[in-house]
Nucleic acid binder design. Structure first.
Lengths: 232, 232
DNA sequence: CAGCCTAACGGCACTCAGTGCCACTAGCAA
DNA sequence: TTGCTAGTGGCACTGAGTGCCGTTAGGCTG
């Protein structure tokens, strides 16, 4: 037997081969009706080897989950500290969209399966929850250093909102068979979330009254208003 | 053998007995280490009977899930159509808090388990997702009839935010051992969400410029500004 | 009160996911 | 060539979940 896992690259290839074989079988004859034996056989390996590459049968559908989480962490580490945290989080979660868009065929098959098989739907929800936790952790750290009293709560809520927006865009795009402009939908959806969770919450309540004479030059008015708005 | 399931009330009692026995065993010797045989034996029934009352071993931890969902649906059906939909949704999800608070001891044990055992955490996440879907469906209907263009997206995002706020309050309360004032935390958390998802989103973007002579009486200024602000 | 009849129950056997163990061997190093 | 390492595959085992069926409790009818 050739030994694929001897080299790291070979391991990756076998992983992908197993995942591909599994998805095809799931689509062809149903998830429950497909046994791990069949998946392993289709990939030309033993059943025991399958469980060395995936912890469980349903993990095979979300094979690249860990990579994406790692990318998200990198995005956070490399993010400009002056950018709006919510904006950064949206950008990070956009990586999920990218990875789905990169392999449309698998994404569509997975979508069909997660819509059909309850246990796979649950598995996907759990996967999304892991993204969401990473988002929440980042946001909590940022909100805290901004001196937000309710940082933990706001972080959890914002992370959930971002994840939901992401899922909504993703599902819409998958339902269109990958035809929709995913970037545009994502921008719209994230704009809604960013807008809802801007730092406005307390500041928006602040009433401001400007009193000037009619002889004040326009540029002075603009400068003063701008200064007042951006002061904090 | 006495036949508990002969009457609907007897069925409920056996369900609760099974759930209680299961939770105690899970806490005592660990979730994976507890077999369904042991749970059934502890409740004085056969293993086969257990699976007539619960679809799966982990379902036993979330036994009253269906009842709560039903209560939420009732809440929506009976809700004042003029109330803010997000507010109604928050009230409905508050039922979850109530049901947890009603049986503190079980809630605390379940909390320990879901924090410890990954598969139970996933199961809980899936359970929350079901609440969230119910919320989203209600909100989508209400937003749509309000003529909201992006009703579906806003509904999904708001539902996720509400669910996250609810979970945050719940976890905080459980970590305090049921000592915190759960109603107060809930009010604060829901206020944050309601505030973030008020209809302001589009309106807040609208810039308004008022031009009046210095001779305009104050009450006229106020009246005109107020009319302009409340117009839509 | 007696007998029937429905449905809950328990046991049995089976499939399959997941795991520990171990012997085997391909490929690398000395 | 020889030895070592690590991926592999087979075997056996546990436990979840399911179909099937004989048994019987308990309500209902006469």
């Amino acid at each position: 037997m050739t030994r694929a896992g001897a080299t790291p690259d070979g391991r990756r290839r076998l992983r992908r081969a197993l995942a591909a074989a599994a998805v095809d079988l799931f689509v062809a004859k149903g998830y429950e009706a497909t046994t791990v034996d069949e998946i392993a056989a289709a990939a030309g390996v033993g059943r025991r080897t399958f469980f060395r590459y995936f912890d469980a049968k349903d993990d095979v559908l979300f094979a690249n989950h860990d990579e994406i989480v790692a990318e998200m962490e990198e995005t956070f580490a490399a993010a400009d500290p002056d950018r709006d945290p919510v904006e950064v989080a949206c950008a990070a979660v956009g990586l999920v969209l990218d990875s789905y868009a990169a392999e449309l065929d698998v994404s569509l098959k997975r979508f069909t399966l997660t819509r059909t098989v309850p246990s796979l739907r649950d598995k996907e929800v759990a996967t999304v929850d892991r993204y969401q936790r990473v988002l929440a952790r980042y946001l909590r750290a940022r909100f805290t250093e901004q001196g937000d009293e309710t940082a933990s709560l706001r972080a959890a809520v914002a992370a959930a909102a971002i994840a939901a927006a992401n899922n909504h865009v993703l599902r819409r795009w998958l339902r269109s068979g990958g035809q929709d402009d995913i970037a545009a939908s994502a921008a719209e959806a994230f704009a809604l979330v960013i807008d809802a969770f801007k730092v406005q919450d307390a500041a928006a309540e602040t009433t401001m009254v400007a009193v000037m004479t009619t002889s004040t030059p326009l540029h002075t008015v603009i400068a003063k208003v701008n200064a007042a708005l951006t002061e904090p």
